[in-house]
Design a protein around this nucleic acid. Structure first.
Lengths: 157, 157
DNA sequence: TTTAAATAGTTGACAATTCAAGTGAATATT
DNA sequence: AATATTCACTTGAATTGTCAACTATTTAAA
């Protein structure tokens, strides 16, 4: 009978009045797929895909990362990241070395060609972001980001 | 020199002051993966995965869908959905039939076992949603949803 | 009414991801 | 110091997803 719990009913997937259009994770999934598809279009001509792209961007930002670091940021499984990295190495995009301070860790960096590749893709990717946030002001973008982060933090506890 | 364009710089992936933590699609991707991983934990004991689950939920809501309908809602490629559906049929979760009004379309529905399966999984999945939106009020959830939809709509033009 | 074009889905070859089970290096325990 | 445990990957087998090419059905055009 209380207003709040009644209203919340429609977000409860098990509820009879559940409305999927009102379910945030439905839109997170769709938004993510759509973004990925748009990006693939930009990436394909450069012989890249979304997986390689995510790894490359992280390396561009951080300079040097271990396989686990990449897995953590890109939220992928270790074997998956391992294989992406070695694929990228075979394509000349990254260098792979064993850490000098810890023999267990594998350190990955972008090669010159990898850097060039990233920069030329970057030009094309901006349009996707612009399109999605068309009409948004800076504070709105910041708030959107805060929201996404908050949900992520909540879920990772 | 203008305030706005300077502030917006950090969201431009090509920019030198780009900060990935401020990039909404980075968080969309991470949030989506994290949600998927949490869901997988709940789904695994019932012999389900996220793909099957998405198809099952859509069928629970809509009752009957064609392969393309499912592909559209789940934002998957046609061959992918086709294979998921036939896998689910082999596992007894769905029925697959040719439409009586249009011989090209394949109509998919949940079997009784599929329904039971969905209901028992639903019990477990609520906690994931609750965890993510812990501390959110109903208007906040609604606003979050609006935001995600808006981004999706922008991108799909 | 043929023929052409568009739809809706399927299939097979290939690529990517994932699980389970390993390896080898570093830490912790006895 | 020897052994056990944990950590950070790596590998192979199996599953899943994707592209390209194809089939069958319906709709549109000539």
């Amino acid at each position: 009978m209380a207003g709040r719990s009644e209203k919340l009913e429609k977000y409860r997937p098990a509820s009879d009045n559940f409305e999927i259009d009102e379910f945030p994770f439905y839109w997170v999934a769709r938004l993510n797929s759509l973004y990925a598809m748009e990006m693939e279009k930009t990436l394909k001509p450069m012989n890249m895909d979304i997986s390689r792209w995510r790894v490359a961007m992280l390396l561009r930002i951080h300079g040097e990362l271990s396989i686990s670091d990449i897995a953590e940021h890109a939220l992928g499984k270790l074997p998956t990241i391992t294989k992406i990295v070695y694929r990228m190495r075979d394509e000349g995009l990254v260098d792979v070395n064993t850490s000098e301070t810890d023999g267990r860790v594998t350190v990955v960096t972008l090669t010159d060609q990898g850097h060039e590749n990233v920069e030329s893709v970057l030009e094309g990717t901006q349009s996707v972001f612009k399109k999605a946030f068309k009409g948004f002001t800076e504070p709105q973008i910041r708030k959107s980001n805060q929201l996404l982060r908050k949900l992520f933090d909540n879920l990772s506890d």
